[in-house]
Simulated assay, not measured.
Amino acid sequence: MPYTLQYRPVLIDTLISNARIASYQTVFSPANDMELMGAYLWNAHACGALYPLMGAVEITLRNAIDQTLSASMGTFWWAGNRLRHRSYATGAITPYEVQAAHDSFIKATRKHISEMRSRHRLRGHLKPSHAGVIGKTEFSTWVFLLDAEFMGRGLIWPRHLSTVLRGTWPVPQAAAVLGQARDLAKTLRDFRNRLFHHEPAWKRYGVLTEADAVRHLQEKITTAERLLALIHPENLRLLQVNGLLQSARRACSTEEIRRFQHRTRVHRIRTLGQLATLAARSNTENRALEARIRRGRPQRFVVLPR
């Protein structure tokens, strides 16, 4: 039972540390250590539900850009002087975003070659593969490529923008759509980094209450939906049909915080009709509902919608 766990001094003071969990105390205002630990575990649960969504955003954006530019400019479209930018002709100092994109491909190539040497025990001069390099790029690479420095006559944008962003454009101007796509991608890239570095997903300037934290996470899900739909609506449908969006929305909710704090009702199921009613409610409300069935020894379950 959760009431019998040694929250202090073992779990919180030693295994987690008061410094790390202090922000949970401030934002979620738990009544006791059990609720405090519940908020902490909820964060891990929410992060787990958000990982597939963030991964889908990164991979979808990466492949949309790479496949389009590969078809037009060749397999190693980023190499040499193929990837021109607006300031190139003027001889101005290379802008940060352009240099960062260039450096990221060099870094990815080195990582790919290093992996070939270590995993396959290859020696001598190694020729990198297109798929190997692309697979080693970081999310930031593709955010940099959405910069306005690549927008202009003879450059990759706007020439290829409608092929990369095949969803409904919010405005007809290519430059404005490119800017919106970049803002969405940058927001999600920063958020993804927080998730992958095991930081509280809900932390941000201005998040002062539990309601703020939930609202912040729901906004990030909406941002991911917008970018996926802009790249191609079928990307969004894939996540919807397989329940990943619903899972993320459900995980990032006040109801799930309460469940991890052991503050939700446990529904007693005595008949199949009661179970069917509970399942229908779970589906309608997109909520995880706890149930208990007494058949011999009492058994507890969580009813989840698909």
Rank of each mutant, 00 (worst) to 15 (best):
Cys47Met: 11
Glu58Asn: 02
Lys127Ser: 12
Ser140Thr: 13
Glu149Ile: 01
Val303Leu: 05
Lys203Gln: 14
Ala44Asp: 13
Pro158Asn: 00
Ile12Leu: 15
Asn235Thr: 10
Arg194Thr: 12
Thr26Cys: 06
Arg294Ser: 15
Ser87Arg: 14
Arg86Leu: 12
Glu115Arg: 15
Arg215Ser: 15
Trp77Val: 07
Ala279Val: 10
Thr223Phe: 13
Gln180Pro: 04
Ala213Val: 06
Gly48Glu: 10
Ser104Gln: 03
Arg215Ala: 15
Gly135Ala: 08
Ser129Asn: 12
Ala89His: 14
Arg189Glu: 04
Thr75Ile: 09
His130Lys: 13
Leu146Asp: 00
Pro170Asp: 10
Thr209Lys: 09
Leu195Pro: 02
Val241Gly: 00
Phe191Trp: 05
Gln274Glu: 15
Asn18Gln: 12
Glu149Asp: 14
Ser23Ala: 08
Trp157Asn: 05
Ser162Gln: 08
Ala229Trp: 07
Leu53Lys: 02
Thr168Ser: 15
Arg226Lys: 14
Val57Tyr: 01
Ala100Met: 06
Gln6Tyr: 11
Gly124Gln: 01
Leu184Thr: 03
Ala19Cys: 08
Pro305Ile: 00
Ser140Leu: 05
Thr277Lys: 02
Ser140Gln: 11
Met116His: 04
Thr254Asp: 10
Leu230Phe: 02
Trp42Phe: 15
Glu285Gly: 02
Thr254Ala: 14
Leu165Phe: 14
Ala181Asn: 09
Ala49Asn: 05
Asp103Val: 06
Ala211Arg: 15
Trp202Arg: 07
